[in-house]
Each structure stands twice: as C-alpha cells, then as structure tokens.
C-alpha cells in the first residue's frame, strides 16, 4: 500500500488551517467562528495523520484521537457559552460582546 504523499497531505492541511484561520478572523457570527476553529483543529489532526502515515507510526493517529476528544469537549463548553451570550445579548454578533474594554 502506497503511503500518502506527505507534501500533498501537509499542503491540504495547511490550506484548511489557513481557511479556518481567515474565517475566524473575518466572521462575526460566533457559531461560525466556532465552526472555523473546528476546521483548524481538523487541519492540525490531518497533519498528524499524514505524518504518522509517512513514518508508519501510530502516534499520529493517537494524537488525532486526542484532538477529536478535545474538540468535543471544547464544543460542548463553547456552545454553552454561545447560548449564554445569546441569552444575555439577544444576538450572536461577537462585536456586541465588548463590554470588557479598558
């Protein structure tokens, strides 16, 4: 079985990560920001899988399981926070939550 070509895999991961990052930066809806963060996490996970495949090590897949678990936990907390924000501010616009300024 041929290994994944590492440069292609990493390029894909990089593109995904950048897309996620840009979208976090430019989106104002908090739910979309959360989704973008998920994309970034998955990009990182993909990079681990590719690397693990290249050196035929199980570590890459172990790390991906970790990321997956962490992402699940993060989403549960993040969604709860988003619910609270909506409850308080009646909007999902992140710019509306700027009360903690200097």
């Amino acid at each position: 079985m041929n290994a994944l070509p590492i440069d292609m895999g990493l390029l894909l991961a990089g593109v995904l990560f950048t897309l996620g990052l840009i979208s976090v930066l430019i989106r104002r809806n908090i739910i979309f920001m959360l989704i973008s963060v998920e994309i970034m996490l998955n990009a990182a996970g993909l990079a681990f899988i590719v690397a693990g495949s290249r050196w035929a090590q199980a570590d890459g897949q172990v790390m991906f399981i970790f990321i997956l678990t962490m992402a699940a936990a993060e989403v549960s907390v993040g969604l709860a926070l988003i619910l609270q924000i909506y409850h308080q501010l009646k909007t999902l616009d992140s710019d509306a939550a700027d009360k903690m300024n200097g």
């Binding site: 930066l25 104002r28 920001m33 992140s94 710019d95 939550a97 700027d98 009360k99 903690m100 300024n101 200097g102």
Partner: peptide, 8 residues
C-alpha cells in the same frame, strides 16, 4: 486602549 473588548 489595547483592551477594547473585541474578540476579533
């Protein structure tokens, strides 16, 4: 002034 509260 750096701490303006905007998440973005």
């Amino acid at each position: 002034l750096l701490q303006n509260g905007g998440i973005g």
